[in-house]
């Protein structure tokens, strides 16, 4: 394995861990499609941040675009609650609008924005090793992206460990959570903020579609393998990491997009869990009724 491959896989793994940790909470709240919506909706934010900050000012970009993700969830709620648009239609209308806006901005400012339409969808993870962070003394610290995503991962890990019980309770039983004085709205928007931040940080390297795949796939796989949220978080992070490594080599072999290949591996992982999971797989379910019948006989 050469050094470039190492950096690419490391980036993929970091993104995978960030996305799959948050994804666990998303799918348990039945909000997978809101995650999908956010991952598309941050695009105009990223483009605008590019335009206004001129250079690639990392933190302005992250925060600006992340705010747009939160605005997207707010819009979804607004259309649904205030304008009384059907819930699923409200998600569909909001994210396609924002994403279309983003693509138009990219086409209009094609010269000024260092992004192209395809990159938006499946990223340019292969270029990660090219953008090296050099200190003033000329020391090579490795790719800039790795540092950014690493930073986001640290923030996320702190967020989830410190506020685990709030995230857990508001996801499981919002009514009880409110009754003991937790604000479900606050934790909802904090979680959505975290999802937006992760999406934005991951966007450039892996694109919108892999963000969705990583937010939904590994958590769904883990959900079939365990009955304990803590284990579910760990398993999905592991599954995501494995998928990003395996995806890299698959892409190499097929000479295709790394993000696409990682999604394909994620699909395969889920398929395996769906069929073979010891507790919740298809085979286990087939076997169970037989065991019960035997016990009765």
């Amino acid at each position: 394995m050469n050094i470039d491959a190492f950096w690419i896989i490391l980036t993929g793994a970091l993104v995978a861990i960030c996305c799959s940790l948050l994804g666990c909470f998303l799918i348990l709240r039945r909000m997978a499609m809101v995650g999908d919506a956010i991952s598309h909706a941050v695009l105009p934010g990223i483009v605008l941040a590019f335009l206004f900050s001129g250079s690639r000012e990392v933190w302005t970009m992250l925060i600006g675009a992340a705010l747009l993700g939160v605005a997207c969830t707010f819009l979804i709620e607004f259309f649904h609650k205030k304008a009384r648009v059907q819930a699923d239609a409200s998600i569909g209308v909001t994210f396609t609008t924002l994403f279309a806006l983003g693509i138009i901005l990219i086409s209009v400012y094609a010269g000024k924005v260092d992004l192209d339409q395809d990159c938006v969808l499946y990223g340019e993870i292969a270029y990660v090793p090219l953008d090296i962070w050099l200190t003033e003394s000329g020391m090579n610290l490795g790719p800039r992206t790795v540092w950014i995503i690493g930073g986001v991962l640290v923030v996320l890990l702190l967020f989830i460990t410190i506020f685990y019980k709030q995230l857990y309770l508001t996801s499981f039983d919002p009514a009880f959570a409110t009754a003991i004085g937790l604000s479900t709205t606050l934790w909802y928007y904090l979680l959505m903020g975290a999802v937006s931040l992760t999406t934005v940080a991951a966007f450039e390297s892996v694109g919108a579609i892999l963000v969705v795949a990583l937010m939904v796939g590994p958590p769904a796989t883990a959900y079939l393998l365990t009955d304990d949220l803590k284990k579910m978080l760990i398993i999905s992070a592991l599954a995501g990491t494995i998928a990003s490594a395996a995806g890299f080599y698959l892409a190499l072999w097929l000479n295709g997009s790394v993000a696409g290949a990682i999604s394909a591996v994620i699909g395969l992982q889920f398929l395996l869990a769906f069929v073979f999971s010891p507790g919740h797989g298809l085979l286990a379910k087939r076997r169970q009724p037989v065991a019960v019948m035997k016990a009765n006989a």
Binding site: L28, R30, F172, D173, A175, I180, L229
Partner: peptide, 25 residues
């Protein structure tokens, strides 16, 4: 407060002890 049983998703990855512990939160 004890909500109606149907108000939550019982497929949630939690054990009986986890749920009981929520009372102390």
């Amino acid at each position: 407060y004890v909500p109606q049983r149907e108000s939550v998703d019982w497929d949630f990855p939690a054990s009986a002890l986890d749920v009981a512990m929520m009372g102390t939160y």
